[in-house]
Amino acid sequence: MTADLSPLDHLPAATTALLATAAEMDDLAAPSLCGGWSRAHVLSHLARNADGLMRLVRAAGGSGETMYDSAQSRDADIEAGAARSRDFILADLGGTARAVDEALAGLSGDLGGTRVERTPGGPSFHARNLPFMRLREVVYHHVDLDAGPAFGDLPDDLVAPFLADEITRLRGAPHVPGLTIRTTEGDAWAVGDGSADVTGTRAGVLAWLARGIPDGIDQDNPPTLPEGR
């Protein structure tokens, strides 16, 4: 982000844009850009993500909740939601999106250093990261609907922090490939031993790192990215 913009500055507009796209889609059974998921799955996931983040806002205040009860319950809830009617899915999406935006806006700065958990005993992170996590979910999955913006349509002040986040996640992945990632805008990052060069626009590199879409980078056969990064 630019120095004077936080995730919460972007989140209301990103949420509004997502809801507008969803409302215009007639066929929620159509495939999304997330392998194995329909558009209905993506929207159901976003609703359950909102619920989970609201649990973490409460956890930062001492409730002891985790984002999800388990990975299995998360997946089951998404599947159940995706099977419901279009009207239910859209109402669920809209209600939870507005509720989580409000909850995140009210998250006290004093609680930002509190560590919260994804699942009981699972990965933990600081509550201050929750607004960025929600913004990333909304923006990325809006693209995944394949009915609105692509990564190339995102403004620079969104692309830049998402790129930095993807580089950090890649560096922390197991079996990370050796890469030097360069953008035509002049950025450069070394990952691992930096042995293979990958070049593209910022948006193109983001699409590759975030979703494995190689269209915006120069290589015909780009290196394989690790799963679960």
Rank of each mutant, 00 (worst) to 15 (best):
S6V: 15
H10W: 15
P12H: 12
A13E: 13
A14W: 01
L18F: 02
L19E: 14
A20M: 11
D27K: 04
L33Y: 05
L33R: 13
L33H: 07
C34W: 05
C34S: 10
G36N: 03
G36K: 04
W37K: 02
R39F: 09
H41K: 08
H41I: 02
V42K: 01
L43N: 02
L43M: 06
A47V: 07
A50T: 05
G52P: 00
M54N: 04
R55V: 05
R55S: 12
R55P: 06
V57P: 02
R58T: 12
M67Q: 04
Y68G: 00
A71N: 13
S73A: 13
D75M: 03
A76I: 04
I78P: 01
A80D: 15
G81P: 03
A83G: 11
R86H: 09
I89P: 00
L93H: 02
G95A: 12
T96H: 11
A97C: 12
A97R: 09
R98Y: 12
R98K: 13
A103D: 01
G106Y: 11
L107N: 00
L107Q: 00
S108H: 11
G109L: 10
G112E: 15
G112C: 14
G113T: 13
T119I: 15
P120L: 08
G121P: 01
S124V: 14
F125C: 06
F125R: 14
H126C: 14
A127R: 01
R128C: 14
L130Y: 05
P131Q: 06
M133T: 12
M133P: 01
L135Q: 01
E137S: 04
V138S: 02
V143P: 02
D146A: 15
G152Y: 05
G152C: 09
D153R: 02
D153H: 12
D153L: 11
D157E: 11
D157I: 11
L158Y: 00
L158C: 01
P161K: 07
F162I: 06
D165N: 10
E166L: 03
L170E: 04
H175P: 10
V176W: 05
P177D: 13
T180E: 10
I181E: 06
T183I: 07
T184L: 14
A190D: 14
D193W: 00
S195T: 10
D197L: 15
A203P: 02
A203V: 08
G204A: 06
A207F: 03
G212V: 06
I213H: 14
D215G: 00
I217K: 12
D218L: 15
T224K: 09
T224G: 10
L225R: 10
L225A: 07
E227P: 08
R229H: 15
